[in-house]
């Protein structure tokens, strides 16, 4: 950019009254695209939660009936509460496993050592794969007839642990959650690495001269600095997993097999609003939209609470 032209622009933009205008200009393109291609279609569809009828645009107004049946209908509500519970488990495992591992890997990768870029790339590799391929490979590894896991367990005389992994209603969901954590661990890792780099070397070195151990340094200096990032990562894990769909679809079909034990809000929504309960079923858009709205409100409450708390904390820290 040439300076002359900057100052020319600056001349126009310097006036106080135009200050707001520039900020608005910066926002407008994103707002336009986002509103036309996301907010508006979604708003139109949320409206459908008050209607019933066949097809994708039900037109028979029923007030809150869809919500009522979601919470009380003997078939629907059982599926709904089941999916809600599973989603919390799915989220909890990601939160614990994926983010803890991410933090651990980041704390290793933040210091330079031989081969650290190789390890970084390896951690990222599963993320580049399509869920289709991840589903296929892990199903193959866990296969009860010719899977590698059972072969390994047999080789080390742990046959008693062998299960029909993905066919067991108790453990299918935890296993798929772990596989999904395996796939996505690179993202929290990256964000934590970015945060850890902001810890200046001098502080750490002076602490080491004082004889602080690595662990002590980690807890005393690094954790406070990465706390805000933990916040962002948690929110992303929260919203990401509450709308998760792909990995279940790839590994347990859109019915959350076996016996709905891996059914999440995302798959339940897909079945209700888009695909139907069985291969030749008609979806119910009204109830599907109601379900999406409930999920949305749940997430919004969670995220707004976080925003409020983090803002309060920031204000206190600044004081």
């Amino acid at each position: 950019m040439e300076t002359g032209k900057i100052s020319l622009l600056n001349g126009i933009l310097r006036k106080k009254s135009s200050a707001h205008l520039v900020w608005i200009l910066f926002l407008i393109p994103a707002l336009l695209v986002y509103s036309i291609f996301m907010a508006f279609p979604l708003f139109q569809s949320i409206r459908l939660s008050f209607f019933t009828g066949k097809g994708l645009r039900p037109d028979n107004f029923v007030g809150f009936d869809n919500y009522v049946s979601l919470f009380t209908d003997p078939v629907l509500s059982v599926r709904f509460y089941n999916a809600l519970r599973n989603t919390f488990i799915f989220f909890g495992i990601h939160m614990f496993v994926q983010n803890t591992l991410g933090l651990l890997f980041a704390s290793f990768l933040a210091s330079k050592f031989k081969g650290h870029s190789v390890y970084r790339t390896i951690i990222f590799m599963p993320t580049t794969l399509s869920t289709l391929v991840i589903g296929f490979i892990w199903t193959l590894i866990l296969n009860p007839q010719w899977g590698a896991l059972n072969k390994i367990l047999t080789a080390v005389h742990l046959d008693s642990l062998i299960r029909p992994w993905l066919g067991d209603t108790q453990i299918a969901l935890p296993i798929i959650s772990l596989i999904s954590s395996w796939q996505w661990v690179s993202l929290p890792t990256m964000m934590f690495v970015a945060a850890l780099f902001t810890v200046s070397d001098e502080i750490v070195e002076s602490a080491m001269i004082d004889g602080a151990s690595n662990a002590a340094i980690f807890w005393r200096f690094k954790i406070p600095l990465i706390l805000p990032v933990i916040g962002i990562v948690s929110v992303l894990t929260f919203v990401g997993n509450f709308t998760a769909f792909d990995i279940i679809f790839a590994m347990a079909t859109h019915r959350g097999e076996p016996m709905y034990s891996t059914d999440l809000l995302g798959t339940f929504f897909y079945r209700t609003a888009i695909a139907g309960e069985h291969p030749v079923a008609e979806p119910n858009m009204g109830v599907g939209a109601a379900l999406a709205t409930v999920t949305f409100l749940l997430l919004l409450t969670g995220v707004l609470t976080w925003l409020f708390l983090s803002r309060k904390q920031r204000l206190e820290a600044n004081r």
Binding site: T139, L142, N143, P144, Q145, P164, W165, L166, G167, D168, P258
Partner: peptide
């Protein structure tokens, strides 16, 4: 049925 049939899919 085969061993571990709970987890065997159509291809298997």
């Amino acid at each position: 049925l085969p061993k571990g049939q709970e987890a065997l899919n159509y291809y298997d």
